[in-house]
């Protein structure tokens, strides 16, 4: 098997708020206040191979964006490490580090807040390749023109400002900007979530064309299972900072193992399946400030039993390329074992 392009090894990311002055004084009088810590990403292992499209799905607050940022190298880990082509990001130095940073680019959800409103398209896209010596100063215009044409924007737009474009066009500018530094990995964080359905289809097609043309690898973060199913080779489902299931899209949709994945797939509104009954799972997504013990999903899980409340389930293999973290896996394994034992007797 080829070597991984990027991998997260037991990566965790915590955000904590330090006690302020008043709280420290209150503590002197015995208030017993503690720092609030959010475990945004909690011991995640994720490997992305070159040329792969990996989908990362989950609901808001599950840590998918944080994991994406960690893997793109724009946010450090609290524990564990991220390896780029086998080398720990923390250990990279100088040129090697710069090369890695250029090789991993992000595309965000809202291009209006990631494109500087005071810069023209030519500068937005052309600045990075010029600074990094990818093109010479006087060739920038041609270079940017070829990029914008590649992403489906007319080259006559180079001197316009971001506000003069529609949402779909702005997203194309964001894509061209990421491509300008010749990346290997694109981390797309909800890149099509804000777009209308027909524009979304245009951008998704563009992503797939670019992958073929430039041999790109994608980490595609989305809450939309329909989109992820369509373009990804592998889908990773997260819940409250942890990976709960990972499989190929066909396997995941046909044979979901984790009750949370099952619920997500069941509740996906679909035009073709005009089901009139909703069977929602109960409860809210718990606050990541106080995640429930054991399996994070157990308070909402219809199949939870005692063990789920105390013990964190580990990811186990369910089949080729299919892993899930659920205690039901062990249960069904012992049940089948008992069943075979009975037939043996």
């Amino acid at each position: 098997m080829t070597n991984p392009l990027v991998e997260a090894v037991d990566a965790s990311r915590r955000f904590s708020r330090k006690l302020d002055y008043a709280e420290k004084i209150a503590n002197l009088f015995g208030a017993g206040l503690e720092e609030k810590t959010v475990h945004a990403v909690d011991g995640v292992n994720l490997t992305v191979y070159p040329g792969e499209v990996v989908g990362l799905v989950g609901e808001s607050g599950c840590g998918k964006s944080t994991l994406g940022r960690i893997m793109a190298g724009i946010m450090p880990t609290s524990d564990g490490e991220v390896r780029w082509q086998g080398k720990s990001l923390a250990a990279l130095q100088g040129d090697e580090k710069r090369a890695m940073r250029l090789s991993a680019q992000m595309i965000f959800q809202d291009p209006m807040s990631t494109l500087n409103p005071r810069k023209r398209v030519i500068d937005l896209i052309g600045e990075a390749p010029k600074v990094h010596g990818i093109v010479k100063g006087r060739e920038v215009r041609d270079y940017v023109a070829s990029l914008t044409e590649r992403v489906g924007l007319d080259a006559s737009y180079l001197d316009r400002y971001p506000h003069q474009f529609s949402g779909g066009q702005r997203q194309r500018i964001g894509i061209a900007r990421a491509l300008a530094v010749k990346p290997k990995l694109l981390v797309c964080d909800e890149s099509v979530a804000a777009l209308d359905v027909s524009i979304q289809a245009q951008i998704l097609n563009l992503f797939m064309d670019l992958k073929r043309e430039f041999g790109l690898t994608y980490l595609f973060i989305s809450h939309d299972l329909g989109v992820v199913k369509h373009i990804c080779d592998r889908v990773v489902v997260m819940y409250l900072g942890r990976v709960v299931e990972s499989a190929t899209p066909d396997e995941l949709f046909d044979n979901p193992k984790h009750p949370y994945t099952q619920a997500l797939i069941r509740e996906l509104p679909s035009v073709t399946d005009r089901r009139r009954v909703f069977t929602p799972i109960k409860g809210e997504i718990p606050s990541p400030l106080h995640p429930p013990p054991g399996c994070h999903f157990h308070p909402r899980c219809p199949k939870a039993f005692d063990r789920c409340r105390v013990e964190r389930p580990v990811l186990k293999k369910n089949g080729p390329g299919h892993i899930s973290a659920c205690h039901l896996n062990d249960l069904s394994a012992t049940e089948t074992k008992n069943a075979t034992a009975e037939t043996a007797i």
């Binding site: 097609n205 329909g226 373009i231």
Partner: peptide, 13 residues
């Protein structure tokens, strides 16, 4: 919509 075409094939915007 992505569900309208087989997986991996170009969408029809």
């Amino acid at each position: 919509v992505p569900a309208a075409v087989p997986r991996g094939e170009p969408l029809r915007p």
